[in-house]
């Protein structure tokens, strides 16, 4: 019986050790260290009705990012013309999307890319302004 108790204690000890606290990257959130390079559209670029606006960007950070949100808005009214979001668990990723310009009036446009650093609300944002002219 003593041997059985010893076996049980050893077994539970092994399980306890294996289930112990998990190591994790404790890098504090540093929004200033998120690098968002938007290669398209270029600031001030002019698009015509029927053009495809290619949205290309690269994002990098010192630790894990959790995703991004993208919004293309009418700068003056705030109306969202295109939006998307994606969960991405990486320290570097690319954004490749496109929007078809169907606007029939001259519009100032604003592209906002927000990257989520964690699930506690820490984020970093980049903005690009450009124009649509029918």
């Amino acid at each position: 019986m003593k041997q059985h108790i010893q076996i049980a204690i050893i077994a539970f000890s092994i399980i306890g050790v294996l289930s112990a606290c998990q190591k994790k990257d404790d890098t504090p959130a540093q929004p200033a260290k998120v690098v968002i390079n938007v290669s398209s559209p270029v600031s001030g670029q002019l698009y015509r009705k029927g053009d495809s606006v290619y949205i290309n960007a690269s994002v990098s950070y010192i630790s894990e990012l959790h995703g991004y949100e993208l919004q293309l808005k009418n700068k003056n009214t705030g109306t969202v013309l295109y939006a998307s979001d994606e969960h991405v668990h990486s320290d570097a990723f690319a954004i490749k999307e496109a929007w078809l310009d169907t606007l029939s009036t001259a519009t100032d446009l604003q592209l906002e890319i927000t990257t989520e650093i964690d699930h506690e609300g820490n984020s970093s944002q980049a903005e690009i302004e450009f124009k649509s002219q029918p």
Binding site: S19, Q22, K23, K24, D25, S63, E64, H89, S90, D91, H119
Partner: peptide, 18 residues
């Protein structure tokens, strides 16, 4: 059934606490 957290990247210890 009990499961510990996953790691999004085990080498870099990116623990997925969700």
């Amino acid at each position: 059934d009990y499961s510990l957290h996953d790691y999004d990247n085990y080498k870099r210890k990116w623990l997925n606490e969700q």
